[in-house]
């Protein structure tokens, strides 16, 4: 299964959420890999705490591979190469966790050629043979990278794929997320131009809300009644807006609560962070765990 992670705008927590989902999926016993296609700023290495590729790899990164400058992209075994104590041993029963870093100092693609699409098809085809889940971080907004993966998936019709669109729970983000999918030259438009079936593609897209503050969350206990009432009114207004924009409950795969750890330091949330050091909230880890299951649960992806 290929899962493409995209967001309407930067700063939504797409990368940190994507990496955490992949990490949880590996803990659930699956072989997983994470491809850093965020070519303008390849920093997935930092989230996995692999300092050698924190800002991408100096050699054999994904950009170089796609440009035809190296025959195969580098693979990083996170269980072996992470600097974090808690990640360096593979927990019993966990699957492989592999990162394909971008190139250090790489930039966004500025053109799409047939060769690049061909290399992308080869890469996806081979990874899909050996990994249960391949998550591809496609970066934010409309880009050649998004075009690239849309073009590549048309050429491999039998390979299953899904899209996750990450957005924050604000008015602007809801409108932008809808625009990215259904707007002019959005994913559906471009996808059908490349030969995807529009309705089929729509069925493969779900939204993930990030940094969500629930009106009944524990953090809000100290708020005044007026504040709470205002928040609740905002929330229902947003829900109404989301419904109108096709970003509502039915199209939503999950939501990630606001968590200080994710805001201040983008990192994987391990069980140790929740149970031992208690810096992260249990709800956050549970949300990742749940998403990691839902992503492959067909009942969560039935036609809208």
């Amino acid at each position: 299964m290929l899962v493409f992670a995209i967001s309407d705008k930067g700063g939504t927590g797409r990368s940190v959420t994507g990496t955490n989902i992949v990490y949880r999926h590996a803990l659930q016993g699956n072989d997983v890999c994470y491809l850093d296609f965020d070519f303008g700023s390849p920093t997935a290495g930092a989230i996995f705490s692999v300092s050698a590729v924190a800002r991408g790899t100096p050699e054999n990164g994904l950009h170089e591979y796609l440009r035809g400058e190296c025959p195969q992209p580098r693979r990083v075994d996170v269980w072996a190469e992470s600097d974090r104590e808690g990640l360096r041993t593979r927990p019993p029963g966990a699957g492989r966790l592999v990162l394909l870093p971008g190139s250090e100092g790489g930039g966004e693609l500025s053109a799409l050629t047939d060769e690049i699409v061909g290399r992308c098809v080869q890469l996806f085809g081979r990874l899909e043979e050996e990994f249960d889940l391949c998550m591809i971080d496609v970066s934010a907004g409309r880009s050649f990278t998004a075009e690239l993966v849309l073009a590549a998936t048309v050429r491999m019709p039998a390979v299953p794929f899904r899209w996750l669109v990450f957005h924050r729970w604000t008015r602007q983000h809801i409108i932008a997320a809808d625009g990215l999918v259904a707007g002019a030259d959005g994913l559906l438009d471009v996808g059908s131009r490349f030969g995807h079936d529009r309705e089929d593609l729509r069925d493969r897209i779900r939204f993930v809300r990030t940094a969500v503050l629930e009106p009944d969350a524990a953090e809000l206990v100290g708020l005044r009644d007026e504040q709470r009432a205002w928040l609740s009114a905002c929330d229902s207004e947003l829900r109404e807006l989301a419904g109108r924009h096709g970003v509502g409950r039915t199209a939503m795969l999950g939501k990630i609560p606001l968590d200080p750890v994710l805001q201040w330091r983008e990192q994987l949330i391990t069980d140790e962070d929740v149970l031992a050091s208690k810096i992260a909230n249990a709800e956050t880890a549970a949300a990742f765990d749940e998403l990691a299951k839902k992503i492959v649960d067909d009942s969560a992806w039935e036609g809208l």
């Binding site: 303008g40 950009h63 440009r67 025959p71 930039g107 500025s110 050629t113």
Partner: peptide, 28 residues
């Protein structure tokens, strides 16, 4: 052999064609 032969679909040449001049990367 590490990469597939460079092909222009439907064409065959006796050497190597002019390389592409436009960058493939933004700000490249």
């Amino acid at each position: 052999g590490s990469r597939p032969p460079v092909k222009e679909t439907g064409w065959l040449c006796n050497g190597s064609r002019s390389p592409r001049t436009a960058p493939l990367q933004a700000m490249g």
